[in-house]
Amino acid sequence: MVEFLNIFIGGLILGGIYALIAVGLSLQYGVARVLNISHGEFIMVGAFLTWAMYTFWGLNPLASLAIVGPAIFVVGFVLHRTLFTRLRTSSASPAAYEGGSLIATFGLMFIIQNLAIITWGTDIEAYSFLNTGVSIFGARFAANRLTMLLFAAGICVVFYLFLARTRLGKAIRAAAQDPETAGMMGVNIKRVLALCFGLGALMAGLAGSLLSMCYPIRTTMGLEYTIIAIIVVVLGGMGSIVGSFIGGLILGMVGSIVLYIDPSLSLVAYYFIFILLLLVRPTGILGK
């Protein structure tokens, strides 16, 4: 029983992390059609802001979510209104835009990382927060990881409700399905796309904040998280928020089981599942 709980809740925690990392990217690609290679850099910035506020001002990392999120949202929104909107209108075709925006996000990745290195250096940073054990039916877990799971789940649920229930959320979904028709129906497409990009960045920032509670952070870590995010997004189905969540959970569960059997195989297992799934179901679990 304890072993089962270890694996199951451990899988949930890992899955929550993966989902959180991926949801923002899914939104950005699914709606705004930007495969954002700089996604991990936003995660890194969120993590560093939280670390800095905790270390220098003693601000509770959970409270800093309320600062980090909006701040990064604004950056993402402005970036899309300026850079990506211009790129979109000047691109000859949607495919050209996807290629162009890919390069632009590469550029962003370099820029953000370099700025972060100038600001925070390249050394490893870490802090101890809620690093105590919590017992669930005899199985023990780190309190900070459980907290991260709760927040990740909460954020994803709120986000899902926002997309499903609000007017703005519906506009976003309409834009994702058919931007031109949505535009004709009176949706301000430029604003909606920028909003999506900003929200994607916001999710990345929050993910970074939560991750910094459990993992040491470096200014050069962004690309590693981008890669995880891409895998989860593809696994779940491009552009499907629920899909990303499910993709993350599956990856987390598999990871947890493999870690139990043979930790050295965990990454092999991820990529194996990923490749197998793509072959069997090329559009991901919940893809169209």
Binding site: G107, I111, N114
Partner: peptide, 11 residues
Amino acid sequence: LYMLIFGIILI
């Protein structure tokens, strides 16, 4: 600064 310059050139 090379990554910064490089990034700007790309964009």
